[in-house]
Design a protein around this nucleic acid. Structure first.
Lengths: 121, 121
DNA sequence: GTACCAAGTCACAAAATTCTGCGTACTTGA
DNA sequence: TCAAGTACGCAGAATTTTGTGACTTGGTAC
């Protein structure tokens, strides 16, 4: 898979204003959304297997703590990237999966992965 | 510009092992490389105009401090994304520009920007 | 002789992020 | 009765990230 755009094409786009300058760049908030020690890994695991329960995620992401997993999941849900489904059974069960918005992020990840495979030994 | 890959295609790739599981994902180190309050903005400015001198960057990124700019530039240089050229003149002059490796990141940024423009109001 | 420029460095302080260790409420199985 | 699992919440500590203000070096302008 080829990069979808050259540097020169990108520069042209910048000229058109689709990427606006200084403080209003649409890239920054996306990267911020993915910051945090665990978020990417959570999305990655949900991409491999979905849905996943709290305890399953915890095992996969060992040595993550309860607190960290809870807050990361909450933030990802607030950003609309994952869906939380609660089943009122005994014992309680909660399932997490990617939303469409979250799935649409995957081509981006793939582009990043391609770059990573080229440049990271 | 369409996303270069669907969720299903991505999942297939995962199956092939090109994206390896748990702790060896090639996406994570890339996102980590771009973390930090200023790095993305520095790359962005260098994409708009290049080369740029330390003082020019500082003005563009106001209110960044010397320390922050220095460390961010150092890390970006260590990661091979930008090039630092020092001219031993009086007064001294240093110029920063993107490397090929850095430029190759731009299609990724564009993909992210597309997602951002779709999903961020 | 005082001040300024460039591109930083240094020691430290403040703020944000992450972790630790506990506690909750409920039930099942031995 | 006792431990174990499920899905968390909370207070405070530790760690990491970010910011502050002064200082450097050698020349040039006032």
């Amino acid at each position: 898979m080829k990069p979808s755009m050259t540097y020169e094409e990108f520069q042209e786009k910048v000229g058109t204003g689709i990427l606006t300058q200084n403080g209003n760049c649409p890239v920054t908030p996306v990267v911020q959304m993915l910051q945090g020690k665990w978020k990417l890994q959570i999305i990655y695991e949900l991409c491999i297997q979905s849905p996943l329960r709290f305890g399953q995620l915890k095992k996969l992401l060992t040595p993550i703590t309860n607190t960290m997993l809870t807050t990361a999941l909450k933030e990802l849900e607030a950003d609309g990237l994952i869906r939380r489904e609660q089943f009122n059974e005994i014992p309680p069960r909660v399932e997490y999966s990617l939303t469409e918005k979250g799935k649409d992020l995957l081509p981006v990840f793939y582009a990043i992965a391609q770059w990573g495979l080229t440049y990271i030994p």
